[in-house]
């Protein structure tokens, strides 16, 4: 028995070594950095341990703005994108002949570069000397007042960012959900039909539980993805996100390291650890909720 255990560990060794080197070691390293006060990357020196980095970050208005932006982004885009993707997938799987065509159309944004999609959004939303952007043209058509979505009020910028994020993640979610829907055995639906089950009840009682593992997967990865959002905001609002008030947590960490105001790995580490804790706890909450709600 003892010997077998040893052998087992031996087999695991390569995997553990790689995971340790590429995952655990950096994490521990960042953790240590975050407690080293006044770290200087040029001279590799610091003058003490403590909570100062955390205190600084937590009092930094840019960081608080980034946290607020990120949380709004997560709270809005994850449920909305999953819900809309589910609706579209349902519609797609009920129109059999058009299914393949639609799948390609919806998948296009996924293989298109995010920056290219960003450009499209510029055309849709940005005010230039020549036009107000397509959306504004539409708004004016219906008698509304034109809004500057890129340099205008906070809510308008937030709207564009959320819209963009949802747009970007949609194809992947639709792809996952349509294949999840297609994999539900038709005989369940036949059985339900013979028993006179209403459409809504079939969806709620059969379809939804059957695809719940996939929905759950999308929600978890959606949460994590939205928390890590950065490049989307850059694509829309340029690199100086702090000035635009549209920074995200990852953006803040990046700026602390390499941005114009950068060169503070300790602050970046503290912010990264805070992000890590938030993502970890949300994932744990998700997992514990899923335990009684998801049917594998």
């Amino acid at each position: 028995m003892e010997k077998n255990n040893l052998k087992g560990w031996l087999y695991l060794l390569p995997a553990i070594a790689f995971l340790g080197f590429f995952l655990v070691y950096p994490l521990v390293d960042v953790f240590i950095y975050s407690f080293e006060e006044g770290y200087n990357s040029a001279s590799q020196t610091f003058f003490g341990h403590g909570w100062y980095n955390y205190s600084y970050v937590l009092h930094d208005t840019y960081f608080l703005q980034a946290v607020k932006n990120t949380i709004i982004l997560v709270a809005v885009t994850v449920p909305l994108s999953t819900g809309i993707a589910l609706l579209i997938s349902l519609a797609l799987s009920s129109i059999k002949p058009l299914k393949e065509l639609f799948q390609t159309v919806y998948f296009l944004p996924y293989v298109t570069n995010t920056l290219a999609v960003g450009l499209v959004f510029m055309i849709l939303f940005k005010k230039t000397a020549y036009s107000d952007g397509m959306i504004n043209v539409l708004i004016q058509l219906f008698g509304g007042k034109s809004v500057d979505f890129i340099d205008g009020p906070y809510w308008a910028k937030m709207f564009v960012l959320c819209f963009y994020t949802i747009w970007i993640v949609m194809p992947f979610k639709i792809l996952i959900l349509t294949s999840a829907l297609a994999s539900v055995d038709q005989t369940y639906y036949n059985a339900a039909r013979v028993d006179g089950t209403s459409k809504f009840r079939i969806f709620y009682k059969i379809t939804l539980p059957m695809i719940s593992p996939m929905i759950f997967y999308l929600v978890i990865t959606g949460f994590i993805g939205a928390f890590k959002a950065y490049s989307d905001a850059v694509a829309l609002f340029g690199t100086d996100l702090n000035a635009a008030g549209m920074n995200t947590m990852v953006g803040y960490i990046y700026d602390m390291l390499y941005g114009n105001s950068g060169g503070f790995p300790s602050y970046a580490s503290a912010a990264a650890i805070i992000l890590f804790v938030i993502v970890l706890s949300i994932t744990c909450i998700n997992l514990s909720i899923s335990r009684d709600k998801i049917h594998y």
Partner: peptide, 14 residues
């Protein structure tokens, strides 16, 4: 008003 038992039973697994 038919009762149908399927080849693979089609019991709802959840």
């Amino acid at each position: 008003g038919v009762g149908l038992v399927f080849q693979n039973y089609a019991l709802y697994p959840h």
